[in-house]
Amino acid sequence: MIRTLQENLNKLGYDAGREDGILGTQTHRALKRYRAKQAPGASESGTIERVLQETLGNDAPHFRSDGC
């Protein structure tokens, strides 16, 4: 799932780095840039889950608030 997210972010021009399936710093930065452009002024909470849902659809994984 993360690899697909990275692939999609890269295709959209958000430089998520290497498509390795690891939700690392570069992927987080790409998510923030994507989200800032898609929903400016929105709260930071739920960023990963919301972006995954928007980018991957309903098959995206759900994360707890601690990021796991």
Rank of each mutant, 00 (worst) to 15 (best):
D15G: 03
L56W: 01
Q38Y: 06
K37I: 02
R18V: 01
N8D: 10
L5H: 00
A42V: 02
G13Q: 03
E49A: 09
K37H: 09
L5Y: 01
A36V: 05
I48R: 14
T55G: 08
G24N: 09
Q53D: 06
A36F: 05
K32M: 05
N8L: 14
G46V: 00
P61I: 02
L12Q: 07
Q26F: 13
D15P: 00
E49W: 12
G17L: 10
A36W: 13
H28M: 14
I22H: 13
R18F: 00
I48Q: 07
Q53P: 00
D59F: 12
L12K: 13
Y34M: 02
Q6D: 01
N10I: 03
A36Y: 08
I22C: 11
A39S: 05
A39E: 09
T4L: 15
Q53F: 14
A42Y: 00
I48L: 13
Q53T: 02
R50C: 09
S45M: 12
G24E: 08
R33G: 03
R29D: 08
D59P: 10
A39Q: 05
R50Y: 11
R35F: 13
L31F: 13
G24Q: 10
Y14I: 04
D15K: 08
R50S: 12
A42T: 04
A36G: 08
D20E: 12
G57C: 00
T47G: 12
N10W: 01
S45D: 11
D20V: 07
E7Y: 11
E19M: 10
R18A: 03
I48G: 08
T4D: 15
G24I: 07
Y34P: 03
R29S: 03
L31M: 14
Y34K: 09
H28P: 01
G41L: 11
T4P: 01
T4F: 02
Y34R: 02
A30S: 09
T27H: 13
D59S: 13
G17D: 05
A39K: 09
H62F: 15
G17C: 08
K37G: 06
P40A: 04
T27G: 10
K37E: 07
L5Q: 04
N10R: 00
T55K: 15
D15F: 04
P40F: 08
G13K: 07
T27I: 07
S45Y: 11
G17A: 13
Y14R: 02
G24S: 11
A36C: 04
G57V: 01
S43R: 02
A39W: 05
A30Y: 11
R18C: 01
E54I: 06
N58Y: 13
A16N: 03
T25P: 12
G17Q: 07
T27Y: 11
Q26A: 09
N8W: 02
T4K: 12
E44R: 06
P40H: 03
D59N: 06
A60S: 09
L31C: 05
L12P: 01
A39D: 09
Q53R: 14
G24Y: 13
T4N: 07
D15Q: 09
K32L: 10
E44G: 11
G21M: 02
Q26M: 10
G17T: 09
I22F: 14
